[in-house]
C-alpha cells in the first residue's frame, strides 16, 4: 500500500518533471542543484545597516520605533538597572488594573474599566523572574517590597500561577532598531516562553551591545542556535481586527517596558511611563 508520504512526494516529483519537460528555458537556470542552492538567489538587499552595533544612532532608532508602537522606554546606565527594575515593579498596579490608553483612531466615549476583574488573590506587585536573571536585579526588587517568584526548570509555575502574577522581568537576546523588535531565545536570563507571555506587564532589559540595526544582522546572530524557541516582540500585544484600527493590548502583555542599558555614557534616569 502506498503511504500518503510516498504519494505526495511522487506527485511533487511528477509535477516538476512534467512541468519542465516541455520547456527549455526555465528549468535549466533554476533547476535542482545538489549543492549550493544559495548560489541561485541574488541577495542584493542590505545585510547590515550603516549604524554600528550598540551605537548611539542605533539606540536612537530603536527608541523611536519602540515608542511608536507604544512600548515604554527607560534609558539607564548599567549601574542604574537594579534601581530601574525595582522602581518599575514597585509601581505596578495590582491585578489587571492597567492604565487605559487612547486608541489610535478612537472616537466616542472614554473606555470603561477593563472587562477583566483582577483575580482576588493577586498580590500587589508579585513578579515572576527566570532562574538566570541577574541576582542584583532580583535583590533590588525584593528590597523594594516586591514578591519575586523564580520560575525554575525543577519547579515551573503553572499557567494559573503565572496568571496571578502582575509582571515578568527578563533580559533579551538581541534587539532590532529598524523594526523596534526584541528577540528572546529562552536563555536562562529570559526563561521559558510562557513566563513572558501570561503576566500582563513585561519588563525587558536590553543592553546597548545587543542592539543591531537590521533584521538580517539579528537573524544571522540567532542562526547560531536556531533550535532554541524564539519569541520576537515588537511592542505590546495588539490587534487591528476591528476596522483595521490598532488597539494595543489583547492576549499577550498589555504593557511592555523596555529598560535600555546605555553602556557608553552615564545617563540620568528618565521616566517616560
Amino acid at each position: 500500500m502506498t503511504t500518503a508520504r510516498d504519494e505526495v512526494l511522487a506527485r511533487v516529483r511528477a509535477a516538476l518533471t512534467s512541468g519542465s519537460a516541455g520547456s527549455t528555458g526555465m528549468s535549466s537556470s533554476a533547476g535542482p542543484s545538489d549543492d549550493g542552492m544559495a548560489a541561485d538567489v541574488s541577495r542584493e538587499y542590505r545585510e547590515s545597516g550603516e549604524h554600528a552595533v550598540g551605537s548611539a544612532a542605533a539606540l536612537e532608532l530603536l527608541v523611536d520605533r519602540l515608542e511608536d508602537y507604544k512600548a515604554e522606554v527607560h534609558r539607564v546606565s548599567a549601574a542604574e538597572v537594579p534601581t530601574a527594575v525595582a522602581r518599575l515593579t514597585a509601581a505596578l498596579p495590582s491585578g489587571d488594573d492597567v492604565p487605559e490608553r487612547a486608541e489610535s483612531a478612537g472616537s466616542g466615549p472614554t473606555p470603561g474599566p477593563d472587562a477583566i476583574a483582577p483575580a482576588a488573590d493577586t498580590p500587589r506587585g508579585r513578579v515572576v523572574a527566570p532562574s538566570g536573571l541577574e541576582p542584583e536585579w532580583v535583590a533590588a526588587m525584593s528590597d523594594g517590597g516586591v514578591e519575586v517568584v523564580v520560575d525554575t526548570p525543577e519547579a515551573p509555575l503553572t499557567p494559573s500561577d503565572l496568571d496571578r502574577t502582575a509582571a515578568v522581568v527578563t533580559a533579551a537576546r538581541v534587539a532590532i532598531a529598524e523594526t523596534g523588535t526584541i528577540v528572546l531565545d529562552a536563555g536562562p536570563d529570559q526563561g521559558r516562553r510562557a513566563i513572558s507571555l501570561v503576566p500582563d506587564v513585561h519588563i525587558c532589559v536590553v543592553r546597548a551591545d545587543q542592539v543591531v540595526q537590521t533584521v538580517p544582522e539579528a537573524v544571522r546572530l540567532l542562526a547560531h542556535h536556531p533550535d532554541r524557541p524564539l519569541t520576537w516582540i515588537s511592542g505590546p500585544s495588539a490587534t487591528s481586527d476591528i476596522e483595521l484600527n490598532r488597539v494595543e493590548g489583547v492576549h499577550g502583555p498589555r504593557t511592555l517596558h523596555v529598560v535600555l542599558v546605555d553602556a557608553a555614557s552615564h545617563r540620568t534616569l528618565t521616566w517616560s511611563g
Partner: peptide
C-alpha cells in the same frame, strides 16, 4: 521574509509577535 511579510500585510515594520519553534524543547512549551 520577516521583512517582506509584516510591511506588506498589516503595514507594520514588524508584527507584535513572531514565534519560532523546532520540534519539542523539554521544559518549554
Amino acid at each position: 521574509f520577516l521583512q517582506l511579510l509584516p510591511r506588506s500585510s498589516t503595514g507594520e515594520r514588524m508584527n507584535p509577535y513572531t514565534s519560532m519553534w523546532t520540534g519539542v524543547t523539554p521544559g518549554d512549551g
